[in-house]
Design a protein around this nucleic acid. Structure first.
Lengths: 298, 298
DNA sequence: TCATGATTATGTCCTAGACAAATTTGACTT
DNA sequence: AAGTCAAATTTGTCTAGGACATAATCATGA
């Protein structure tokens, strides 16, 4: 792997893995992993190899595994577990693997061109549902298997962002209805889902106001008021802890006026067990246009 | 203000303000602020008003004030302090205030159009140095004075991002030299600085690979290798703690091959006291083109 | 006026315990 | 076999209060 010799303190590990300090310490106590060395001051120093393992563990937890089953397993054991795991292979189209090959070959420019070709061949809705969505999943799975690295995922995200932003710029509708405010809650730093939603909604004639990621709850309320938004749309990835999603949606729903609809989408909300009252959960992008039609009729 | 009645637990406050849990607790012990109420379980609950104050305090610390001077002051006292503070007013051009007015009026579309006009009137380098850079500062100061809100800043960032990304898309040079890898370290989540750098470098004929924000240090090293980068360029805002910047640059410099240059820019690095060995600090965007020319000659 | 050493300020880390909420387990019923 | 409910377990996050390295400020002397 990388940085075999490097040592990281607990703050750096928290930032690099997204696992909180408290959690890192309590895992060590309960499961015996991670097992950092100590400096002269009895402070934890995590070897780079363990940080890599923690990143993998984080992703496994994100897809639903339980800590007691995965924290503490060695890398070979983790990989064995991955191969055993039920593969819900939705039969990826061969074209998708070509994109993955471009990522692995670090051909950022070629990747963007190929994505653009697919966009204009398929049209935006199909491009999002048949190419980008499954490709996101495929890339995530390839990362789990160790086939692609974090920086390669970053490269991929960047190219998709570039393509989607260009598309949105050309279909934006400043006078559309309803008015939709797009953002994420603090803690959710991924914007790809938002861009996909903005593209879909804009194409359906809605007027989108993008606020970017991590808007404080109180500010979302003010923004909805200022823009007279009919809908506040939030996006959640798997990296967002389910509890934070739940309480965030509760707080926001309570603070938002009744007549403003609250929509939540992304892989993070698919996990939510009990739906919140007054929050519309959107599992797929197609649900977005449906919900939009419904709202326009009602 | 907003959310007068809402109560937030310490985890939410950490995420919403960017101030760590440990820091929040130790401030309470030392300065008597924040002064959260407790729930039935003796856990801290911060009133929304105090969260707003904490956000302001965070920004004041970011611009160089000391905790003992600002943590614990009431809102009126903080505002008084702001008015006393030496105004290093660089004589903002009147045009800039028109942009601010558009932000205050929540005219996102008009703002983007106005920015685009300025871009094509001034040309990219002048647009960045004479419009975007001072406007960023102006917006930040207006926030400090309570004239604009967080969500309005988000709106502004989004429009600038949109304009810059469109510009970059049209001047990108896939065969340029040198090769530059652009990203931020974990903890730095702002990408505007990166986009400004990418625009500047692309215009100067460099080949830019954007990795987005928050790439782990080990992954930056691998990415530099994969792309045969000549330069790794990082961006830091004021919200990034100086200590994290310092140690991050040290670690990265150590892990990166000698022949790969490491450039660091943004308002966050202007604060750094002692420069790191082997790291080029770029205070302004103009330094970027200079450094590029120098590197091409040498 | 500038450098140098002493002092204070500051963020981050430590241990060890606790608890609410979520999930799993297991018994029981339909 | 499948559903329901309560008990048991798991899990993340919070608490207190102490400690220390390093940065910033202050005081002293050249």
């Amino acid at each position: 792997m990388s940085q075999e010799n490097s040592l990281f303190n607990i703050g750096v590990v928290e930032r690099e893995t997204g696992i909180g300090k408290d959690t890192l310490r309590v895992w060590e106590r309960r499961y015996g992993f991670p097992a950092p060395v100590r400096d002269q001051n009895e402070e934890r120093l995590y070897p780079g190899e363990q940080v890599d393992r923690l990143r993998l563990i984080k992703r496994l937890l994100d897809i639903g595994m339980r800590p007691v089953k995965v924290v503490g397993l060695s890398l070979p054991e983790l990989n064995a577990l991955l191969n055993e795991a039920p593969k819900n292979d939705p039969g990826y189209s061969p074209e998708l693997f070509e994109f993955v090959e471009l990522i692995k070959a670090h051909q950022g420019g070629a990747l963007r061109i190929a994505l653009n070709l697919a966009l204009f061949r398929q049209g935006l809705p199909e491009f999002l549902s048949k190419t980008i969505s499954p490709l996101n999943q495929l890339v995530g799975e390839a990362w789990l298997r160790g086939e692609i690295r974090v920086f390669e995922e970053h490269l991929y995200s960047e190219q998709v962002t570039s393509v989607l932003r260009a598309a949105i710029a050309s279909i934006r509708n400043p006078a559309g209805t309803p008015r939709v405010l797009l953002t994420t809650l603090p803690g959710e730093e991924h914007s790809l889902g938002l861009l996909m939603a903005e593209a879909t909604l804009s194409l359906s004639g809605a007027q989108c106001t993008m606020l970017g990621v991590q808007t404080p709850i109180g500010e979302i309320v003010l923004a909805a008021q200022a823009h007279q938004a009919d809908i506040v749309a939030l996006s959640f990835t798997l990296s967002m802890p389910p509890l934070q999603i739940k309480s965030g949606l509760q707080q926001l729903r309570q603070a938002l006026p009744r007549q403003v609809a609250l929509w939540a989408g992304g892989s993070g909300v698919a996990r939510q067990r009990k739906p919140e009252d007054g929050v519309q959960y959107l599992g797929a992008l197609s649900d977005l246009t449906e919900a939009l039609d419904l709202l326009r009729q009602g």
